Simulated scan of single mutants.
Amino acid sequence: MFGRFSLTLAVALATAPLHAEEMQQQVDAAFEAVATAVAEAGLDPVISIDHARLASAAGIEMPASRVQIFSDPDLDSAILSAEIRSGLDLPFRVLSYDGAGALAVMTTDAAFLMARHGLASSDALEGWDARLDAVLTPVNESATTAPVGTLSRDYGIIELASPYGLAESIQRLKDAILAQGDTIWFGEHDFRARAEARGITLPGATLLLFGGPAPGGVAMAEFLSIGLDAFCQKLFVYEREDGSVFVLFNGIAALSELHYGRSDKPHAALDARLAQTFSEALTRQ
């Protein structure tokens, strides 16, 4: 995957580490090249986030990093039909960032989905990788995939049960997120609605997207590749067959251990804060 040579991205990669301004230019160019490929492939943009510039506006300096999230509703629906919990790692996302002074691009491939969610090989997962291959053609010299070497089923997933129905759970969680003074609301992605538009039946499944530029910038500063799943934190709210509602989100410390073999105090602090915030939001009063 990502092996074809491409001249589409007209950016010369220096052999020595680049200065911050030059690195930001390369990250921006890679981001725009992927965004163009997403549009040309007919995929649906969901959201894009400029980690470094948002962090800077909040008074935190960090290396260049930008993530884009986009969707193929047919593939999402097929994968969710096999395992609804996989929605935590959907839809597509591509991170362009400063990889120690050289442009780096990272994405999540089918192997990651299979390892973390116990999925078997399928046409949908093959389609997932094929879509990524096409989108990453402009930057394939720099593209890698999220590590799977130590990944196991449910690795790093924090799960909470909700005593409420889907709609009320989502509203309570959204209210709790918006009440955080240092947090930005990026939006929500309703997988079931998109599936129904294609005649596919799914349980309730909604992804809530938000982030804290200041705490996120601190957490990512030396761990940039976790920006694939952090800073734009993903809160996945879903229904089981019996109608019970559960909430999944990523443990930042676990992601850091997966990517770098280590974590830092801000990661554990963020995990504790998120768990407390969401637990309180879902507590019956």
Rank of each mutant, 00 (worst) to 15 (best):
I170E: 03
Q233Y: 13
N250F: 11
A205S: 07
P203V: 03
S244R: 04
K234G: 04
P163K: 13
C232Q: 09
D229M: 14
P215E: 07
T145V: 15
I252V: 10
G217P: 12
G261H: 07
A214S: 10
A167H: 00
H189S: 12
V218M: 14
G149R: 14
F231H: 15
D242Y: 06
F191M: 03
R194C: 14
D129W: 11
G216T: 01
Y260C: 08
A179E: 06
V148L: 07
N140V: 11
T137I: 10
P213T: 00
R192H: 08
A161E: 13
A219C: 13
V135G: 03
V245W: 12
G149C: 07
G165V: 08
L125Y: 07
P203G: 06
C232R: 03
A143D: 01
M220K: 08
L255H: 04
G211R: 15
E159L: 09
L228E: 14
E159P: 05
V135K: 02
D229Q: 15
T201S: 03
A193P: 04
D154T: 14
I177S: 07
E241Q: 05
V245Y: 07
G181Y: 01
W128A: 02
S152K: 02
I158F: 11
F249R: 00
S142Q: 11
G199N: 09
G261C: 03
S256G: 14
F231K: 12
A214D: 01
A214P: 04
G199T: 04
F223Y: 15
A124N: 14
A124V: 09
G127V: 01
A253F: 13
D175L: 06
Q180W: 08
P163S: 10
L235V: 08
T206P: 05
G181M: 01
L125N: 04
A161Y: 03
R198L: 07
I184R: 06
S256N: 13
V218L: 15
A205C: 02
A254I: 01
A124F: 15
S256H: 13
L125F: 01
K174W: 10
A161D: 14
T150D: 11
A176Y: 04
A161G: 13
Y238A: 10
G156S: 10
A221K: 11
L255T: 10
R240K: 08
F249P: 04
P203R: 07
G199F: 07
L208Y: 00
K234H: 10
E196W: 02
K174T: 15
G261Y: 03
I226Y: 10
L166D: 07
W128P: 04
Q180M: 14
L255C: 06
F246L: 14
G181K: 00
S244H: 03
Q233L: 08
L258D: 12
G149N: 12
V245L: 09
G211C: 06
F223G: 11
Q233F: 10
N250Y: 03
E126N: 05
A161M: 12
L258N: 09
S225Q: 14
R240M: 01
F186V: 00
A193Q: 10
L207W: 06
V237W: 07
